[in-house]
Simulated assay, not measured.
Amino acid sequence: MTDTPRLGSGRLVIATHNAGKLKEISALLAPYGMDCISAGSLGLPEPAETGTTFVENALIKAQAAAKASQIVSLADDSGLSVDALDGRPGVYTADWAERQWFEGAPGRDWYMAMGKVEGLLSEQGADVDRSAHFSCTLALAWPDGRHAVYEGRVNGSLTWPPRGEMGFGYDPAFVPEGREQTFAEIDPGEKHAISHRADAFAKLVAEQFGA
């Protein structure tokens, strides 16, 4: 948007029910005087993510939280896009890890999700393009309907079998550009400095808290 509003110090709702995500985002924004609380702690429902893009889904979550709480809200939507799979899994990144009834107890199985990606790539032959990227979209929404969006990205390629124990999600199969280690083999502090989320947050901080 052209007239981007600015955050002041104070309360900010993080549109998530995930305690780990709240902790991570709170740490990133603490230096700027933001007091972060989660949508879960306020008892807000999780809206259906019906968008077909990361931007749409991030805005759905941020705007729902801002409207329900009447507090400025921040949401993120992120995922893995594989070039040879026409950008899949994309916005369905987490869905690919959901177990079906015949695959065991409910929950997410990220090794299974990585296996789905690898299986589809292997069907295209040994010379398949293994390029991929992680995307992160951050959406800020104000109760009056105004909003701002920040997008981050990290390019890389997929490897098989997965390597490393320090990451989560698809990290063990993703090698960022210019590196030989997967995201799950890189020290978490170093990974956070080069990740898609770091890229998006750098843009948010520059616009919201810059001179």
Rank of each mutant, 00 (worst) to 15 (best):
M1V: 08
T4A: 14
P5S: 08
P5L: 11
P5V: 11
R6W: 04
V13P: 00
T16W: 09
T16D: 09
N18H: 13
N18Y: 05
A19D: 15
G20I: 07
L22A: 07
K23S: 12
I25K: 08
I25R: 09
S26M: 07
S26Y: 04
L29F: 05
A30W: 03
Y32W: 15
Y32L: 12
D35G: 02
C36P: 02
G40Q: 10
G40K: 11
G43Q: 12
P45A: 13
E46W: 05
E46K: 15
P47C: 06
A48M: 12
A48S: 14
A48C: 06
T50G: 04
T52M: 11
T53G: 08
T53K: 14
N57P: 06
L59C: 14
Q63F: 01
Q63M: 13
A66M: 13
A66I: 09
A68C: 06
S69D: 04
Q70V: 02
S78G: 07
S78M: 12
L80D: 02
L80C: 06
V82P: 03
D83T: 12
A84T: 05
A84F: 02
L85E: 04
G87N: 05
G87C: 06
G87Y: 02
R88Y: 03
P89K: 10
G90F: 07
V91H: 04
D95K: 15
E98H: 03
E98P: 00
E98S: 03
R99Q: 02
R99W: 01
R99E: 00
R99F: 00
Q100V: 02
F102C: 13
A105N: 03
A105S: 14
P106F: 00
G107E: 00
M112E: 01
M112W: 02
M114A: 14
M114D: 03
G115R: 12
K116E: 03
G119F: 01
Q124S: 02
D129S: 13
R130A: 02
S131L: 03
S131F: 00
F134P: 09
C136Q: 08
T137G: 04
T137N: 09
L138V: 10
L140E: 06
W142C: 11
D144F: 06
D144I: 09
R146N: 11
R146Q: 15
V149S: 08
E151F: 05
G152Q: 08
V154R: 11
N155M: 11
S157C: 05
S157G: 05
L158M: 03
T159D: 00
P161M: 07
P161W: 06
G164V: 07
M166T: 02
F168G: 07
F168V: 13
F168S: 07
D171G: 06
D171M: 13
P172E: 09
P172K: 13
P172T: 10
P172D: 09
P176W: 05
P176L: 04
P176G: 07
R179K: 14
R179T: 07
R179W: 12
Q181S: 14
T182L: 01
T182Q: 02
F183N: 15
A184W: 06
A184E: 07
I186A: 01
D187V: 10
E190V: 15
E190P: 01
K191L: 02
H192R: 15
I194V: 15
A200C: 08
A200N: 04
A202Y: 03
L204F: 08
V205F: 04
V205I: 15
E207N: 14
E207P: 00
Q208V: 07
F209M: 12
